[in-house]
Simulated assay, not measured.
Amino acid sequence: MKKEFRKKVIGDRKSKDIEFINKNSSIITEKLLSLECINKANNIMLYLDFNNEVKTDDLITKLISLRKIVSSPITLKDERKLVPTQITDLHNGIKIGAYGIREPKNDPNLEVNVNDIDIVIVPAVAYDRECYRLGYGGGYYDRFLNRLRKDAITIGIAFDLQIFDSVPKEEHDAQLDYIITETQILTPRK
């Protein structure tokens, strides 16, 4: 069930042209930057976009210009673990890592302590209206999010086409604090 659902949503997202991706990524970036929690945060982890995901390079550049500590995960496949690593240079400080996804170059001096992270902007294949995410199937982010401080904020960014009334989920799947799309900001009903 999850596998087929994932495949369909990724296919729908991949079918969108670059104009759609760029325009809506820009709208989502502006919405994110207007959130009070983003403005108050010092330390923000987010993903480097891949495969027609919401683009994050512009967001990263803007967050760095606001003097935020910005990190992205290095994926350790053998340990099935994410290591948040600070981005200091979006052009020369990035390499292609596990699964063909861009990630910061490995520099132990730039590793970020999980307890210092205020906000994590999370990738996903799809989300439901209660802010549960359907990831790519490796469980990396679900395990990582469980290690965050209790007051850390989790945000999913996606295009409207990735939002559903419900997504296949299991007990360990993470519920996020916000989902932001080009037309809406979702929060879990309390």
Score class of each variant (00 low, 15 high):
I121H: 06
L110Q: 01
L110W: 00
E111V: 14
A98T: 06
N109Y: 15
Y127I: 08
I121D: 04
N115E: 14
E103Y: 01
I119G: 00
P104K: 12
G97V: 11
N109K: 15
G97R: 07
P108E: 10
V114M: 12
N106Q: 07
R102L: 12
I119Y: 02
I121N: 05
A124V: 06
N113Y: 15
G97P: 09
E103F: 03
P108T: 12
A98W: 03
I121T: 06
K105G: 02
P104N: 13
G100I: 09
Y127M: 06
N115L: 13
N106K: 05
V114G: 08
L110R: 00
P108K: 06
V122N: 00
N113V: 15
Y127D: 08
V122R: 00
I101R: 11
D116H: 14
V120L: 02
V112K: 11
D116W: 13
P104Y: 10
I117T: 06
E111A: 11
L110G: 00
G97S: 07
R102T: 12
I101K: 13
V125F: 07
V120W: 01
E111C: 12
K105H: 03
N115K: 13
E111Y: 14
I117Y: 03
G100A: 06
V112D: 11
N115W: 10
D107Y: 05
D107Q: 08
V114I: 15
V120A: 00
E103S: 02
N115R: 13
A124E: 06
N109Q: 15
G97N: 09
V114Y: 13
V125E: 05
P108F: 04
P108M: 08
Y99I: 11
I121S: 04
I101Y: 13
G100Q: 06
I121R: 05
V125G: 05
N106C: 05
G100T: 07
